[in-house]
């Protein structure tokens, strides 16, 4: 089985800074890490390999220093790592990113499964898996909580709104995993040793026949207008009473918050 995992390097959580003029997340000089969702994608890819054999590729688009994240993927047990890096890829929005990823994945054809996380910590759109599914014309399977691979088919269960669905899909597919899906292994020391003896492939604009439409800076249709800080206001409340009364007060509070929340259409998805 050939598995491709898409990963992104993001600034370590405590390090996030916004560049106000560019409207982008500042990356220079900060600690970086693998996007947390993507670690779950990695875990799934590696456990599938352990079960069915095959090869696992980690693919990341990003600046040269994203090699660090790929090195960690290799340390976790990935067989091959590919970095998509070029100045024409810089400043890409999700559409431009999809174009590049699509070409990289096609270059790795034939493959069985592409695995992605749900969203990234530093931009959080969740567009990539959906757009890639469209671009590659293969099904996207998301919200799964149980799965197996059998005779070239994905067989699994997922939540879908208020339903549970059983699904069976022919490979190749894209699987999108969430953070709760599995427990990510720790990086073993032997893996770290071996990761630095492996080579990370670098693919750039000239590696695949990139059409002129690929130009992150000039041709990204998404324009960022403004970046606003999310303000979380914390309030201390004292909950007094018997245990039952306290429980009731907490329950009432949760209900109230929940009702407020679904007033926003964005929260309905």
């Amino acid at each position: 089985m050939k598995i491709i995992i898409l990963i992104k390097q993001v600034p370590a959580v405590h390090e996030i800074r916004i560049n106000r003029t560019l409207g982008t997340v500042q990356r220079e000089g900060f600690d970086a890490m693998i996007n947390p969702d993507d670690e779950h994608a990695l875990e799934l890819g590696l456990s599938l390999k352990e079960k069915f054999g095959g090869e696992v590729y980690a693919v990341s688009m990003g600046p040269p220093q994203a090699e660090g994240a790929l090195r960690e993927c290799l340390a976790m047990g990935v067989d091959y790592a590919v970095l998509l890096s070029h100045h024409r890829f810089a400043m890409s929005d999700t559409l431009q990113t999809t174009f590049v990823l699509e070409r990289a994945i096609r270059k790795l054809e034939p493959f069985d499964i592409v695995i992605t996380g749900s969203k990234t910590l530093d931009s959080g759109t969740g567009h990539i898996p959906v757009q890639l599914s469209e671009a590659l014309a293969i099904p996207l399977i998301s919200q799964i909580y149980k799965m197996e691979i059998k005779n070239g088919f994905f067989i699994g269960e997922r939540t879908y709104g208020h339903e549970y669905q059983s699904i069976k899909v022919k490979l190749p597919i894209i699987i999108r995993v969430d953070r709760g899906f599995n427990e990510v292994r720790f990086i073993p020391l032997l893996g770290i040793k071996q990761a630095f003896e492996k080579k990370i492939e670098i693919w750039n604009f000239d590696t695949f026949e990139c059409p002129d439409e690929i130009d992150g800076c000039e041709k990204s249709p998404t324009k960022l207008l403004e970046v606003i800080d999310e303000k979380i206001i914390r309030k201390n409340v004292e909950i007094i009473g018997t245990n039952d009364e306290k429980a009731q007060k907490i329950l009432d509070f949760i209900k109230k918050v929940h009702i407020q929340k679904i007033k926003s259409p964005l929260d309905l998805e």
Binding site: R185, F186, I187, P188, L189, L190, G191, I192, K193
Partner: peptide, 27 residues
Amino acid sequence: EKINAWGISIPEKYGGSGLDSICNSIV
């Protein structure tokens, strides 16, 4: 055992991770 902490600087040939002494100190 899962993170190979029992043979940090012992060569891979003997079941270790073959990392240097600075890595050993960091662990």
